[in-house]
């Protein structure tokens, strides 16, 4: 009985705050966008900062039910620009990036996942995230190069989609090819337990703790002597994930 009450409370709280924070963002967004010029930032940069703040506020609001433990929150900022490679279990994973200090990052996505999001979809698009589906490799590289030149990091999920059962899927090597071509280090972003909080296809929040680990950067030129350097890099990073994910997740 107590468990059911706790589950209902968690869902009212987490969904309630999602609506409140989203509505507040909707109201504040036009004013926030106007701050671009005085700050000397691009519109994309201001939206990225705003998205980071949105995530940070939301995670703070749901803390009574969803705690987040972060390992190395300063690491990305210290080594920026880097390529962040994360495992993907839940839509919360994107928000979890607000637990680290680097706010200027663009997301590399296959198909555009925010099509159905009223207002936020177009807004996120203005943040100059990079879509890869149907885009030539040279063009993806050009777009990423442009973002990195402005000091942005790149975030990608090499599994390509969220995992249903929490297991680590096969890695696509595009993100690692980018790392090699742009000569950027790769920071593995290991998320544990977000699937247990809210899994793919589920609308039910379960109270608990998520752990997010920013692992030390891996030099992308480490495998320059291999026949396919980006594949060797991809395999190495995947091994790091497998090793980290075998440790029992927090309860």
């Amino acid at each position: 009985m107590a468990k059911t009450i706790s589950l209902i409370a968690a869902n009212v709280w987490c969904w309630g705050w999602l609506i409140i924070v989203s509505m507040a963002t909707l109201l504040v967004a036009p004013l926030w966008l106007l701050t671009a010029k005085p700050r000397g930032w691009s519109l994309a940069r201001v939206i990225r900062e705003g998205a980071w703040l949105y995530g940070w506020v939301y995670l703070a609001c749901i803390r009574p039910f969803v705690r987040v433990e972060v390992v190395n929150p300063h690491l990305v900022k210290e080594h920026s620009p880097v390529i962040m490679a994360g495992n993907h279990q839940s839509w919360l994973d994107l928000m979890l990036l607000a637990t680290q200090k680097e706010r200027n990052f663009c997301i590399l996505v296959g198909t555009w996942p925010f099509k159905r999001l009223f207002f936020f979809g177009p807004l996120i698009k203005l943040a100059r995230n990079v879509t890869t589906e149907g885009v030539a490799a040279d063009e993806i590289l050009r777009q990423c190069h442009r973002e990195v030149a402005t000091g942005a990091c790149i975030l990608g999920y090499p599994e390509g989609t969220r995992s249903f059962d929490g297991s680590l899927g096969r890695f696509h090597s595009g993100l690692f090819k980018l790392a090699v071509e742009l000569n950027l280090p790769v920071v593995p972003v290991i998320v544990k337990n977000s699937r247990r909080i809210i899994s793919k296809g589920s609308l039910i929040f379960r109270p608990g703790c998520i752990k997010i680990i920013f692992e030390p950067p891996i030099g992308s030129q480490m495998f320059a002597g291999e026949p396919i350097p980006h594949r060797a890099l991809s395999k190495y990073v995947r091994q790091r994930f497998l090793k980290a994910l075998t440790i029992a997740p927090p309860q």
Binding site: A137, R170, H172, S173, G174, K177, P227, I228, R231
Partner: peptide, 17 residues
């Protein structure tokens, strides 16, 4: 098998090797 276009390019090198 879920290979993408980049994987297919890599497959050529894998087969050559």
């Amino acid at each position: 098998l879920g290979l993408d276009s980049l994987d297919v390019v890599d497959m050529v090198i894998v087969l050559e090797t």
